[in-house]
Design a protein around this nucleic acid. Sequence first.
DNA 1: CTGAAAGCGCTTACAG
DNA 2: CTGAAAGCGCTTACAG
Lengths: 353, 353
Amino acid sequence: MTAGKTRLKDIAMLAGVSIGTVDRVLHERGEVAAKTKEKVKKILLDTNYSPDITAQVLKSRKTICIASLLPEPSDENAFWKNHPSGMKKAINELDLFRINLYSVTFDMQNEEDFQQKAGEILKLNPNGVMLAPLFKSESVEFCRELSKLNIPYVFVDGFIDSTDYLAFIGEDAYRSGRVAGQLADLVTRRDQKIAIVCIARNIMNVQHLNNRINGFLSYFNKTFSSAERISRISITDPTPVIVENALDMAFAEHPGISTVYMSGSKSFLIASYLEKKGLDNVHLIGYDLLDRNVAYLRSGRIRFLIGQRPEEQTYKAVRKLFDFLSFNRIPEEKEYLPIDIVTSENVDFFLNH
Amino acid sequence: MTAGKTRLKDIAMLAGVSIGTVDRVLHERGEVAAKTKEKVKKILLDTNYSPDITAQVLKSRKTICIASLLPEPSDENAFWKNHPSGMKKAINELDLFRINLYSVTFDMQNEEDFQQKAGEILKLNPNGVMLAPLFKSESVEFCRELSKLNIPYVFVDGFIDSTDYLAFIGEDAYRSGRVAGQLADLVTRRDQKIAIVCIARNIMNVQHLNNRINGFLSYFNKTFSSAERISRISITDPTPVIVENALDMAFAEHPGISTVYMSGSKSFLIASYLEKKGLDNVHLIGYDLLDRNVAYLRSGRIRFLIGQRPEEQTYKAVRKLFDFLSFNRIPEEKEYLPIDIVTSENVDFFLNH
DNA sequence: CTGAAAGCGCTTACAG
DNA sequence: CTGAAAGCGCTTACAG
């Protein structure tokens, strides 16, 4: 709290050496006699010395370069639209340091594009990397290269266990599913039915959605058998016609569905379907504050959206990389951000900031 | 983004003057000929100069002192227990600057104690002040003194319009009431009744609670007349016996109450009552993650708690004061923090961090 | 193995 | 009104 008043100079005086020598033991730059080293180390500890960071930064003036590799946001997948603002916020806060951000995006339908962009980043030789590991094998490969070059990397949104990542920041999918389960339970009468919808193409994504769905189901397991009450609808293509057909079939097969849990971020597709079919009494619970979702939340067509703070994910990723690179602070390995319950009444607070 | 590479020295060269002169126009320290001033100013603008903060801090080494005046947390009012951790977090983040925090607490039942502690702070002559203006006239008086001494101050939790505050950080009470209303609506059948409880002694507090209650009522006004469905219970003393009697009367007078909205932070009192009386089917909605509230949330006795991020309030207050004092950044006048909807399933995320 | 010195970019007296 | 110089606390060659 009280910034250290002892300076290198004071340590040097106490030890009867020059500040150059103190600096050498401080940074373990060698070339110091064992005895002097011991003496200085002791005094360093006794005085609880901590360097003045402003002076360090002023002197060294090295520029830190952080690269990010995230999916290109699109209409098809607007979830990634807000991630850049978190990075910008972090950079702004750190503007007294020399820090550069090199943002790269890849086409999330295209493994090759990921590989190519990863290659670009490797060529740049940044000090640290943040990535969303959407494609497993390609990501593993990239991480291996980074490790080889001694470049630390942080995962955002998902993580791969077999790699040597510095940190992961994201959602606890299982628990977000449990939260959704609780909300679904709250709005669904015991004699009514619940449907779980899963729309997914790529495998990583499916894993994440499955975790959510397992969490969702786990909430009901405790109370009573869910088998008869909960049905699952899997759709492999988000094209509206295909979605419509799949839902038509499901609603025909399971009469009495009064709540739909959309495990991914495309609730607006379901909302649009329900509106079209006049299914006004069906509750809809989904994820992420995409513009189209928020519009349906406001109109009442979507009851709850669960937020996972995309800006905060990238904000924290940049901060953790920076703190590690500058001050050697080792972050917690995994940080799960709060699971926000968002309704039409509190959504505004989660949009601007 | 890219930190400015032009230095005072460069400006001086371009203007054909010494860096001392540039510095004088930069900080408007006078003693500069009008012509030179103009010339330098133009170059400053053209080059988009921004000073190197590390060098500034290193040189000036002035210590900023921020004082806080908050209520002493107690069993009686545990809401204030978590505010200090937000201040600590801010101080830790700013540890490369010379910044001291002087925390003072007052007895929230005692106006005189507030005055005395305010006097202590004035004697200290800090650079900035953060306060919770629980007592109106005493706070106005204190603020007047601060203004006279040119000490900026930031309100936390509440604000007083007639004063000259730098910023306010807190809850939008009306809208938090609306959120509660929406949640109450969700769990209450149309043929069931809702009770609003208000326990308060001091007047500022009542104002805040009234704003919440008005927000709550406004949610129902739109849909249908609430007069017949919603009753209000006012209690002036949080002593369990008194609370019990008041609730006994209310439940007797309004049969069919199935949801209780507790407008203040003492939901645990209601929860305890409901448990004692075996009123297991009554939904309870309240505020703030006090230990005792959280325990009832976990057990299911409390359905929803609305959180107002106490740590973030003080964190932001310290940051805003610091940014203003150090870099002359003028903050937004009022910042309303997100209204968190907390249930037994997501509460953990809101506790640690 | 160790010390003396220069310099990072700024601010602050001081001399003229 | 203006400039030259010292110094904030550190790091980095360089000389010995």
